[in-house]
């Protein structure tokens, strides 16, 4: 349990640094550390497959692309638009409402009680695969079609329209 509290502290600490860091590249690097602590959380829950997939997909691919884009855009303080007070005010109210909703939802669910898994080996690849392809086959297939359509859409947006390009 102590490990959990330490890692949870690190997650929150790094995620605060993500939003307070002045340099956008530093902020992405803190985000990478935050995702790394999530990987440790998964391992503590004995969900090895989720842990390693989180590691490969989020840390190894998505955040590399984030970093890539930020390096290309070369954001710095001078090019940043100053935010007006109205936007800051709206952001504070919006964020506060979201926080209240989350806290209320957590309280309603009683999620502060630790969840005890019926089967501690549920997170291993074999069991996860069986559950995904037996019990949850339809949602699994639908979400894969959703991802495929997103991919096709991205390619379509990236290619030039032959009529307008000429």
């Amino acid at each position: 349990m102590n490990t959990f509290y330490f890692i949870a502290f690190l997650s929150i600490f790094f995620s605060i640094l993500v939003i307070t860091a002045k340099n956008p590249v530093h902020s992405i690097l803190y985000l990478i550390l935050t995702f790394f602590t999530f990987t440790i959380h998964y391992i503590l829950l004995n969900a090895q497959f989720l842990a390693i997939v989180n590691f490969i997909v989020y840390m190894g691919a998505i955040l590399v692309l984030f970093l890539y884009t930020l390096m290309l855009m070369n954001l710095n303080k001078e090019s940043e638009q100053p935010k007006s007070n109205l936007i800051k005010f709206a952001a504070v109210i919006g964020g506060g409402c979201f926080l209240v909703t989350i806290v209320a939802a957590l309280k309603a669910f009683g999620a502060s009680n630790p969840v005890i898994l019926k089967d501690p080996n549920l997170g291993l690849v074999k069991n996860l695969g069986k559950v995904l392809f037996n019990e949850y086959l339809l949602p699994f297939e639908i979400s894969s079609v959703l991802l495929l359509s997103a991919m096709v859409g991205a390619v379509l947006l990236a290619t030039k329209d032959p009529k307008t390009a000429a």
Partner: peptide, 19 residues
Amino acid sequence: NVGILYVFGVVSLGVYGVM
């Protein structure tokens, strides 16, 4: 039991050093 994915994760992490 996810050995091969571990290798994969390490490989994907390697690019951060260069970046």
